[in-house]
């Protein structure tokens, strides 16, 4: 059987990749994809712990809820990106900088 540590390495790597993507990408859609990586790294953790910790099924339920919420959030985020595209004609985060100071 694959030991617990291997799942945790994968999820830590995914989390770091997600944070790296959020910090470096300038396209709003790419940033949203990186955010999905962060959510899914947490999901891997939850399911792995639920598998290895005695009598703890809650993690799997939690992971299902996270998937649903991530979908809601992605839907709202893409709607906002579309709406911004209509007024700005691109989705580059560097150009969405009218608000600052």
């Amino acid at each position: 059987m694959i030991p617990l540590e291997h799942y945790l390495y994968i999820s830590a790597a995914l989390f770091s990749l997600g944070v790296f993507g959020v910090l470096t990408r300038r396209n709003a859609v790419n940033v949203l994809m990186s955010i999905e990586l962060i959510f899914n790294s947490a999901n891997i953790n939850l399911v792995a712990f639920s598998r290895f910790v005695e009598g703890a099924l809650g993690g799997q339920v939690f992971a299902l809820l996270v998937i649903v919420i991530a979908a809601c959030e992605a839907a709202v985020a893409l709607a906002i990106v579309m709406s911004l595209y209509r007024v700005m004609k691109n989705v580059n985060l560097d150009e969405a900088a009218e608000l600052k100071g």
């Binding site: 959030e73 906002i80 969405a96 608000l99």
Partner: peptide, 8 residues
């Protein structure tokens, strides 16, 4: 723009 920043 505010909304996009908020959600990200």
């Amino acid at each position: 723009e505010a909304s996009l920043k908020y959600i990200l």
